[in-house]
């Protein structure tokens, strides 16, 4: 596991929105909830690889833009009845900066 890296300011991610981080192993989606928590998932929907970063965020879930699967931000798993899971990475906010540790 690599080190924590400072990626951007919290304000750079819109509330209920996301940003894409270009990592070596492929894009990672960084999400921000209404209550300013941040989460990071691989930007690939477990269904057919849709870019989760482009979905609508509500509560602690994102709706994939391609076929509407709901993915939990905390654990990366699809909400029933769909089954699947996307890799997650650790993310946190410190002094207004978003830190990411790529798994």
């Amino acid at each position: 596991m690599s080190d924590w890296k400072s990626i951007c300011a919290l304000e750079d991610i819109p509330r209920l929105g996301s940003r894409v981080v270009e990592a070596a192993a492929g894009p990672i989606a960084l999400f921000r909830t209404a209550d300013d928590r941040v989460f990071a998932l691989d930007d690939r929907c477990p269904h057919k690889g849709g870019p989760l970063s482009q979905g609508i965020v509500a509560g602690d879930r994102v709706t994939c833009p391609l076929h509407g699967w709901l993915i939990g931000l905390e654990d990366g798993s699809a909400v029933a009845p769909d089954v699947g899971c996307v890799k997650r990475h650790e993310a946190r906010v410190e002094a207004g900066r978003v830190l990411l540790r790529i798994s």
Binding site: L16, A34, G55, I56, V57, A58, G59, T63, G68
Partner: peptide, 11 residues
């Protein structure tokens, strides 16, 4: 019922 709705009601 939900804190920020969902992808159906918000749009």
């Amino acid at each position: 019922r939900t804190p920020n709705g969902c992808a159906s009601c918000r749009p």
